[in-house]
Amino acid sequence: MGEVYNPRGMRTLFEKEVRRFLKVSIQTVLAPCVTTLLYLLVFASVLEDHIKVYDGVSYLAFLVPGLIMMTVIQNAFANASSSLIQSKMTGNLVFLLLSPISGVEMVVAFVAAAVVRGILVGLCVWLVALVFVDVPLVSLATVLLFLVLSSAVLGAVGLIAGLWADKFDQLSAFQNFIIVPLSFLSGVFYSVESLPGIWQAISRFNPFFYMIDGFRYGFFGVSDVDPELSLVVTLAFLLLVSGVSLLLVRIGYKIRQ
C-alpha cells in the first residue's frame, strides 16, 4: 500500500538482518555444523546396522538430508524470531517502525534474510557431512528448491513467533513445543513408511514432512510421497504462513499499539 515503493528500504533491512547473524557466525553457522557432526557420529556408531530405510541407501546417507533440513528449519526460524524479539525487548524496533517501509517490504526482507541463513547453514552442514558419508545427489535443482522454500517457510513462521512472543521464554516455548516436535516427527531420522499406520496418517498432516521428503528426493530419487505433491504442499504452506505474517505486520500486531 502507498504509491511510492521503497526498494532501498527493503534491501537495507534485508542486509541488516544478514549482517546481524554474520556478526555472530560462530553461534549461527559454526555451531549447527558441529551439532550435525555429533549426530552423525552418534548415529553411525549406534544405529547403522539396525535400521533399514530405502534399498541401496545406507542409513547414515539417509540421515544426512534429514539432518541438513532439521538444521535449516531451526536456523531459519531463529533468524527472524530472535531478531524481532530482541528489537522488541530493547525497544530499537522503533527505528524500523518509524521508517516508510511497508508490511510487504518488511516480510520480504525478514524472510529473505532467513533464507540466506538457511542456505548458508544447510550448505555448510552438507559439506561437513560429505567428509564422513557418501551421499548421492540425483537432482541438485530439487535440493536447492526445497532448501529455499523450507527456509522461507520457517522465516515466515519465525516472523509470526517473534511478533507474538513478548519474552524469550515464550519464544523458546514456541520452538520447543511446536518447531522441534514437528521436525522430529516429520521423518528426519526415519522413513515414514516404517511407522505404524496411524502415525503414518498423522505424519501426512505435518507440513515439515513434505519439506523433508521432497528435499530427500533430490538426493536419492526415492521418497515416501510424490515430490510434486511435496512441492505443492510446501508452496501452499509458504503462502499460508507468509500471508499470516503479512497480516500481523500490517495490523501492527503487538508492535504498534
Partner: peptide
C-alpha cells in the same frame, strides 16, 4: 547509514 537506507536515501 542503516537508518538512512530505511528511508530510501541513496
Amino acid at each position: 547509514r542503516l537508518q538512512a537506507g530505511y528511508f530510501g536515501c541513496p
